[in-house]
């Protein structure tokens, strides 16, 4: 066993034990697929697809798209200035930098669904609380990602802008933004895509959009509509992904 040290053998054993323990905890049981027919019966209920509600569904998809876009975009707008404060090299004060980093990871540690539950209770059902939930979470995520991009940016141009006599904050902003812009966009579009999935979950708890419709169709055994809901969701995610790649290829 020339390739393996004792240590890796130990790691391997621990890994096996972890997998086993997790299977016990999650009641992992492949024999449940014995009743495979049930699954097929269930899925066959999805077809033929019921197109009659398509206009309403499109309307709800648009709501979802708007929720995801607005939430992630507002998140980006707020995260951008914050990330300059949360980056080691551009933060005006050391203490502010540490505070911002902690604040951002605190926001990130709260799942969107928790934000959603709190806000939906406080503000009433509908898409608006869902937008806010997505926004808050994205401030945390994008703030961290962008501040890391700022820290990795080339210092040369910043120095040149200072040498020209620009104010420090302006020198940072002007020399760093063009450098990180393509990566900011690519992070943003990924977060937009994630926000679509999140807004579905938020729909389940009353946030509106195609997510809420999917949930309702499911609960009322309306499977021929469920299939169309799922199809629309997939199309939406793919469309955003494609549009994101297109924009990035234009910007780089």
């Amino acid at each position: 066993m020339a390739w393996f040290k004792k240590r890796s053998l130990l790691t391997f054993t621990v890994l096996i034990l972890l997998v086993y323990a997790s299977m016990r905890l999650t009641e992992f049981d492949l024999s449940k697929f014995k009743d495979f027919r049930n699954m097929i019966d269930f899925l066959s209920g999805w077809f033929p697809v019921d197109w009659s509600l398509l206009p309403d569904m499109l309307r709800d998809s648009l709501d979802t798209l708007a929720m995801a876009f607005l939430g992630s975009f507002l998140g980006l707008l707020i995260a951008l200035p914050i990330s300059f404060i949360a980056a080691r090299n551009t933060s005006p004060y050391r203490s502010l930098f540490h505070f911002m980093r902690v604040a951002l990871s605190f926001i990130r540690s709260i799942p969107e669904i928790v934000f959603g539950l709190v806000l939906l209770t406080a503000l009433g059902l509908g898409p608006f609380p869902a937008v806010l939930a997505i926004m808050f979470h994205n401030i945390g995520v994008l703030g961290k990602l962008i501040s890391e991009l700022i820290e990795a940016a080339d210092e040369g141009p910043q120095e040149a802008m200072k040498a020209v006599g620009a104010k420090n904050w302006f020198a940072f902003l002007f020399s760093v933004l063009p450098q990180i812009w393509p990566n900011v966009l690519s992070h943003y579009f990924y977060r937009f895509e994630v926000a679509i999935r999140t807004s579905l979950i938020l729909g389940f708890i009353g946030g509106g959009g195609i997510g809420q419709r999917l949930f309702n169709d499911f609960k009322t055994f309306n499977y021929s509509s469920v299939s169309l809901d799922v199809l629309l969701i997939m199309l939406m995610v793919i469309a955003v992904d494609f549009y994101g790649s297109y924009v990035r290829s234009k910007v780089i």
């Binding site: 080339d154 040369g156 141009p157 120095e159 040149a160 802008m161 040498a163 020209v164 002007f174 020399s175 063009p178 450098q179 812009w181």
Partner: peptide, 13 residues
């Protein structure tokens, strides 16, 4: 005071 640098330090893009 004008200053020029070894790695030029131009603003990319």
């Amino acid at each position: 005071t004008g200053m020029i640098f070894q790695h030029f330090n131009l603003v990319p893009r």
